[in-house]
Design a protein around this nucleic acid. Structure first.
Lengths: 135, 135
DNA sequence: GCATAATATACCATTATGGTAGATTTAATG
DNA sequence: CATTAAATCTACCATAATGGTATATTATGC
């Protein structure tokens, strides 16, 4: 139940981009600033673009900008995009994933957990992270 | 950020044991009931014993019983024992795990998440799961 | 001493993670 | 139009974690 580096690097990158609002930032610049390999970051940024959280601009002077205002992007979207899904256990979203889900007593644990995780992340916007008080 | 089968099988096993209160249940019986390979379950039960959630009885007629009353065992303990720890990101418990943790804006996300996960699991006791209403 | 059951140790296949490499496309700019 | 900077695409790879098996050993009741 560890969070991947993808999520950690990706969220950091999103915050960095949000803090440089109007500028188009190349993956090169972001990678240098965040101290991550550019090649690896490339793939992370692509995921974020595919999830419509970033817009990309090709060619010289190109790079990435937020697809929407930071205030409208919530952390749950970002992590879901990077992890593939926020879902911790299949059967919560898809009861047919386990033939026992009908009378499964553990399922309610996973359901409650899913709600708690989602709510916790949803409560924080990218704007909060980029421009809120530090520490 | 997927939950391992260890946690899923392990929690199911704990519930089964709790529902058969006074009886000493062999891993054989539990495995059959829960439809999991005995060998794999053995290792899961060992983890739960090492975490002092189960007591084991060796030899013929032996098996496992709860180490404490079900009402005193909370789900967060069980999952922590099975996952190794509930911690999603190192730096939350151990700031020195990341040299950026001093002024890291993502850290507060992970901290809040950790609190939410723990609280959500702690709110449910094994007794609730074993004898609460179904579905 | 035999059957049963936990325990210990070692092993293994598959998948996910965390990356790297190289070629290709796109667009700005001189 | 050639150059260059940038995203994008595809393929690859090493390592670790997951999920599980096999085998031998130890303890206990009968």
């Amino acid at each position: 139940m560890k969070l991947s580096t993808r999520s950690r690097y990706g969220l950091r990158a999103m915050i960095f981009i949000a803090r440089n609002r109007e500028q188009v930032l190349s993956s090169d610049v972001i990678a240098e600033n965040e101290d991550v390999s550019k090649k690896y970051l490339d793939r992370i940024l692509m995921r974020l673009r595919e999830a419509n959280l970033l817009r990309s601009v090709k060619g010289q002077g190109g790079g990435y900008v937020l697809a929407r205002p930071a205030g409208e992007i919530r952390t749950d979207e970002i992590i879901a995009a990077l992890e593939g899904s926020l879902c911790l256990v299949e059967c919560v979203d898809d009861p047919s994933a386990c033939e026992k889900s009908g009378d499964c007593r553990t399922r309610r644990v996973w359901s409650r957990l899913a709600v708690a995780v989602k709510a916790s992340l949803r409560a924080i916007s990218l704007e909060d992270l980029a421009h809120g008080e530090d520490a």
